[in-house]
Simulated scan of single mutants.
Amino acid sequence: MTFANVGTLGAQPGSRDALVAILTRPSADLAAAGCLRYDVGVSAEHPDTVFVVELWVDAESHHASLGLPSVRAAIDEAMPLLSGDMGGFRFDVVGSPLGGAA
């Protein structure tokens, strides 16, 4: 079942764009690990927040991806830019009005 991880990452003041640059680097490893979609967004209303929407083939693929060397390196690089203010939701996708299997 498709797994969604939707969250917010608080950035240190003035670090949002650097964090976005790390999160939006092309990564063949994510697709190979089962990532179907990885979208990064920002909002003028929240200048120190980065929004992330991830869709995975399943929760296990998401969990396993956190051990990939390229993902670990990106996390290590991003850590100093984070404020520690994080939030979000994880859930199994049950359907979509756009069609396709969940």
Rank of each mutant, 00 (worst) to 15 (best):
R72E: 09
E54G: 01
P80A: 08
G14V: 03
F91I: 00
V93P: 07
A18S: 13
G84M: 00
A4L: 11
R16Q: 11
S65A: 15
S83V: 02
S83N: 06
G34L: 03
S83P: 06
A64C: 03
A21T: 02
L68A: 09
D76S: 10
D76C: 00
A44P: 09
A102K: 03
L19S: 07
R37F: 00
S83G: 07
E45K: 09
T2M: 13
T24Y: 14
A33T: 02
Y38I: 02
L68S: 08
A28M: 03
S65G: 02
A33E: 08
S15Q: 15
M79P: 00
L66F: 07
L66C: 06
G14Y: 11
H63V: 08
V94G: 08
H62F: 14
P26N: 12
R16V: 03
R90I: 10
D76E: 15
D76N: 14
I22K: 14
R90M: 12
D58T: 08
L55G: 01
G88S: 08
P69K: 08
D48E: 11
V40Y: 07
G67H: 14
V50I: 10
F91G: 15
P69Q: 05
S65E: 07
G99E: 11
G10H: 05
S61P: 09
S65L: 01
T49L: 10
A74P: 06
R16I: 02
V40H: 04
F91W: 03
P26C: 02
L19T: 09
G100W: 13
A102N: 13
G99K: 03
P80Y: 10
P47C: 07
L82H: 04
M1K: 01
V50F: 13
V50C: 05
M1I: 03
A21G: 08
L81Q: 06
D58G: 06
G14M: 04
V52H: 04
H62G: 00
A59V: 05
T49R: 15
A74K: 06
S61A: 15
V71N: 12
S83T: 13
P13A: 05
L98S: 12
S15E: 11
W56M: 11
G10T: 04
I75N: 12
